[in-house]
Structures are given as structure tokens and as C-alpha cells.
């Protein structure tokens, strides 16, 4: 259990984390979601006691982490897979950190096997790819059988197989009753992993919501229909509570009528349908809608730079 209460962090004039209050509970995977620069990593550093909050407080299992008597057993964290000494082997890296709480060679070798690094266990960590670094970071997080596992962008740099593995692995950790907290800036990563979402933007809490509720709130019953007789179909569908929007001469977007009823109606009147598609907005779209206001770095898509160049 991680509890944040009015947690804020200010660097000079920049507010990185602004009055965050939420709990991360055991037994579920909690996704910490927000655009780049939303304060996710800063928050995680404060949870670990690495950065001191400007105001507010955070506790781990009800206590200040700095007073923990078995730190790595309480929280195992992956902040940055590349943050290892390049000259030290993966195995020795794990042995050194594990030694602080009495983790020995046997457990380290098991973990290397778990994350698939046994073959390169004695290679210097500096020679690792990004994905291998992430695996080593995950092994580091699991060193002392922690009750809380906290991972910052864990699938960053992993191949599809590795991503799949991390997902099922995190789910199994949560199923064992552990607290699993992972950050990402991609909703697609959370869709299949997280049970609960904490969404932040510009350091502020935007949503603290269960995945089920988030999906329900993002739901819409829009249906797209393509038919050569779309005006006729539009006339048949007109009713109170139903919105019909022609999006092209042959295409309609219909809200308020289930797709099956539209199909039945068209069949009864002999109207040909070329497409009948229920439109569920992706969670990614719903997430982007929520955080649009707080995205720090917008890319330009208007091609101004190109046209300016062309005009010259």
C-alpha cells in the first residue's frame, strides 16, 4: 500500500508535482498514466524517498520509507534500466544491491533465470541493450520478494515477446496480493495490464478510477453506416433520442440505435448496407481527450515548417 497525501514538488518556479493525493492498493495492478513531463517519475522518486517533497507526504505500508527496516522487501523499484555501473556484471550488480537485505547468490541466480538473463549474467551491464537493461531492472526490483513492485515505464525497449511476458508477470504478482504500480505514457500499454488507473497531467491528478469505470465512461454507442441509399435510411431512423449525422453522401454516423436494429431495419426496407460498424472510441482516444489540456510538448502537424521552406 502506497499512500500519497497532498504531495507536491517544486523545482524553483517549475511545479513538477502538484498536490497529488491517491492510494495504490495491494492485489491490483495500478497504472500511473500521463503524458511526458506529467511528473510521474518525480512522484515515484518521492515515493522511494529519493526526492524530498516540497509539501505533503507519502507513506509505504503506513510508514515513512526512510525508517523501513527491510527496504527492498517493502518496495522493489525499476526507475531506469540503464542506471547500472557499466563495468560491473549483471550478476554482481544484483548481488551488491541484494546484499543490503541479505539476498544471496542462490536467489540472484533464480532471478536471472526468471528474467532470461542467465546467459549474459557475467557480461558487463554496460554491454546490455535497452531491453536487457529493463530485464535487469525488473530483476533488481524483485530481489527481496517485495510487497510493492514499482516500475517506471517497464516495457520501454522490450520486444513484443518481452512486453507480453512483463504483462502476465505483473498480473501474477498482483494476483499474489502484491501492490503493483507502473507508469506509462501510453494507454495501450495499460489496457491489458492495469486494473486501476491514476491519470496525471502537469503534475496534477486528473482521474483516479478503476479500469472498468474508465472504459464505461469512454463508451459510446455510435454506429457508422455506409449505404448507397443513406438519405432513405436516415429518414427511417429519425426518432426522438436518435442523432443521425451524414459524414459523406453515402455515410452516416448514428447515435442512439444499436447496430443490430439498424441492420434489421435496413433489411426490412430492402436497403443495401455496405458497412455497419459500431464505433467504440479507443481508450487511447479517451485518455488523450482527458490529458489534451496538460500535454507539455505539442508537436505541430500543420506542416508550417515545410510550407515555409517550400515558399522560400
Amino acid at each position: 500500500m502506497i499512500e500519497l497525501r497532498n504531495l507536491s514538488k517544486r523545482y524553483g518556479d517549475v511545479v513538477a508535482v502538484d498536490d497529488l493525493t491517491f492510494d495504490v492498493r495491494p492485489g491490483v495492478v495500478t497504472g500511473f498514466l500521463g503524458p511526458n513531463g506529467a511528473g510521474k517519475s518525480t512522484t515515484m522518486r518521492m515515493i522511494l524517498g529519493l526526492d524530498r517533497p516540497t509539501s505533503g507526504a507519502v507513506t509505504i505500508n503506513g510508514r515513512d520509507y526512510r525508517t523501513s527496516r527491510a527496504p527492498l522487501h517493502e518496495v522493489g523499484a525499476l526507475l531506469d534500466g540503464k542506471a547500472v555501473d557499466k563495468g560491473r556484471s549483471a550478476r554482481n550488480h544484483l548481488l551488491a544491491l541484494g546484499a543490503t537485505v541479505g539476498v544471496g547468490a542462490r536467489r540472484v541466480d533464480e532471478l536471472l533465470d526468471t528474467v532470461g538473463l542467465t546467459e549474459v549474467a557475467h557480461k558487463p551491464a554496460g554491454s546490455f541493450s535497452l531491453g536487457m537493461g529493463q530485464r535487469l531492472g525488473i530483476a533488481t526490483a524483485l530481489l527481496a520478494d517485495p510487497s510493492i513492485v514499482m516500475l517506471d515505464e517497464p516495457v520501454n525497449g522490450l520486444d513484443p515477446d518481452g512486453i507480453l511476458w512483463v504483462r502476465s508477470f505483473l498480473r501474477s504478482l498482483a494476483a499474489e496480493g502484491r501492490t503493483v504500480f507502473l507508469s506509462s505514457h501510453l494507454m495501450s500499454e495499460m489496457e491489458l495490464t492495469a486494473d486501476h488507473l491514476v491519470i496525471v497531467g502537469r503534475g496534477r491528478l486528473i482521474r483516479d478510477v478503476s479500469m472498468a469505470d474508465f472504459i464505461a465512461s469512454a463508451w459510446s454507442d455510435k454506429v457508422r453506416v455506409v449505404s448507397p441509399d443513406s438519405p432513405a435510411l436516415a429518414g427511417l431512423l429519425a426518432a426522438p433520442g436518435v442523432t443521425v449525422t451524414p459524414s459523406s453522401p453515402t455515410e452516416l454516423e448514428i447515435e442512439g440505435v444499436p447496430a443490430a436494429d439498424i441492420g434489421d431495419l435496413a433489411a426490412r426496407h430492402g436497403l443495401p448496407l455496405h458497412e455497419l460498424v459500431p464505433l467504440h472510441p479507443s481508450l487511447e482516444e479517451a485518455f488523450m481527450e482527458l490529458t489534451r489540456e496538460s500535454v507539455q510538448y505539442h508537436g505541430r502537424t500543420d506542416g508550417a515548417l515545410l510550407s515555409a521552406d517550400a515558399a522560400r
Binding site: P26, A70, L72, L97, G98, A99, V103, A144
Partner: peptide, 19 residues
């Protein structure tokens, strides 16, 4: 999994020195 940790994974000064 949230009760106070047992002695297996206790942090001690000799262990930190060893690390």
C-alpha cells in the same frame, strides 16, 4: 503482504558494508 517484514530481509549495517 503488508505486515512488518520478518528478519529474513532485515537491513543491517554489516549487510550494507557487505554490499
Amino acid at each position: 503482504m503488508t505486515t512488518s517484514p520478518d528478519t529474513t530481509y532485515r537491513i543491517t549495517t554489516p549487510r550494507v558494508v557487505r554490499a
